[in-house]
């Protein structure tokens, strides 16, 4: 029997290794898998590369990983936001490497990874500093920069409901990076508000089919 449900947050993040590349869903405070990130903090993995749109704010989730010096590198589109004090502290001290990526490129690089593609050419950023050192090619008269796929060892994401096969539906704008990250990691771990029975999710409305999901854990709101 296929059953991707696990009984605890500890089981959900078990085995995440030092040096792992971890994709963390969320945009601002919407859709962040806060409890999974805290479980990762407790699990203890260090020297992580985080891929996430923002670099955390306040003292929780991504900011807590930065505060506890678990992060070696962050791949991010908008690290600077109100309350991103731990990112700024670690960045200014030279303790963390930042790879800045335009937001659409960040998402598409993960899509390419999930889709088994070797990368893509995009006009976004082709005339900017962020294209330095990358191949630029003129396509249909416009400059495009080559971007490589971005794979995760692990993805931590948040959804609204899951069944035991790992089929997922999300909640409003909290969907954001979740469906793409789920495809791009070797191990996709999802926290959901609610488990439902197999067959209860309308197949026309499943957003992430369970093939992309490895573990789901219930974290009631």
């Amino acid at each position: 029997m296929i059953d991707k449900r696990v009984g605890s947050l500890t089981e959900a993040v078990a085995g995440i290794a030092d040096g792992a590349t971890v994709l963390v869903g969320g945009f601002g405070n919407s859709g962040i898998p806060v409890e999974l990130v805290h479980a990762l903090l407790n699990e203890g993995a260090r020297d992580l590369t985080l891929v996430t749109n923002n670099a955390g704010s306040g003292e929780t989730d991504v900011a807590a990983l930065l505060r506890e010096r678990r992060v070696r590198k962050i791949i991010c589109s908008y690290p600077r936001s109100s309350g991103s004090v731990w990112f700024e502290e670690r960045y200014r001290a030279g303790e963390i490497e930042l790879e800045l990526v335009p937001q659409g490129t960040l998402s598409e690089r993960m899509r390419a990874a999930g889709a088994g593609l070797g990368g893509f050419f995009t006009p976004a950023g082709a005339d900017s500093l962020l294209a330095e050192g990358k191949e630029v090619r003129v396509i249909n008269g416009r400059r495009h920069v080559f971007e490589e796929p971005l794979h995760g060892d692990v993805a931590l994401i948040k959804a609204r409901k899951a069944d035991r096969w790992g089929n997922l539906v999300y909640s409003t704008a909290a969907r954001n990076f979740g469906p793409t990250m789920a495809t791009a990691a070797a191990l996709t771990v999802v926290q959901v508000r609610e488990f439902v029975e197999l067959g209860d999710l309308d197949p026309e409305c499943v957003v992430t089919p369970g093939i992309f999901v490895d573990r789901v854990v219930e974290v009631p709101a």
Binding site: S77, R80, Y91, R92, L100, P102, Q103, G104, G125, L130
Partner: peptide
Amino acid sequence: PPAVGGAM
């Protein structure tokens, strides 16, 4: 620290 978001 730099930040770009969706501008590009």
